[in-house]
Amino acid sequence: MAVTTGPSRRIVEIVFAAALIAVAGAVFVLSADYPAESAAFPRVLAALLALCGLIVTVRQLRHGTEAGGQPFFAHLPRFLLAVVILVAYVAAIGVAGYLLPSFALAVGLPFVLGYRRLALTVPLALGTLAAIVLIFNVVLERPLPPDVLMHLWETVR
């Protein structure tokens, strides 16, 4: 179990607050190039954001609460899996188009998370995609991301 718990809540709190302070710093530096009237508003916001980040950090360091020691993630491996799958999905859309990766996601994600009733997931995935194609592409003429299926179809002909 020890492997799967991941960082504690307190660590994530502090890392996130540090990230906010870093963003605030970046905003401050980047706006140096802008004319004064354009830079003023983001700079004020950045200063306040850094202040808030600081307060959150100090609070965490000074009052170590019971909850702070708890693991942040309920199930780290499954979370990482979801992140990887989602990133892969979006990347795959860029390469292979919308339909194939979407089908893979709708069937694959429940499968790897332990839901194996393909008799439900496969027809559902197909039906959803059919509905999406019908509404977005056929009726409303919104283009789908360019799809390999279409190229295949073109070459087969």
Binding site: Y98, S102, L105, I132
Partner: peptide, 20 residues
């Protein structure tokens, strides 16, 4: 629908919607 099945379907709609 079981939530593990519904969630990816939501992603399908969200993805195409955001692209559109």
């Amino acid at each position: 629908l079981p939530r593990v099945v519904l969630a990816p379907l939501i992603i399908l709609f969200v993805a195409i919607g955001v692209y559109a």
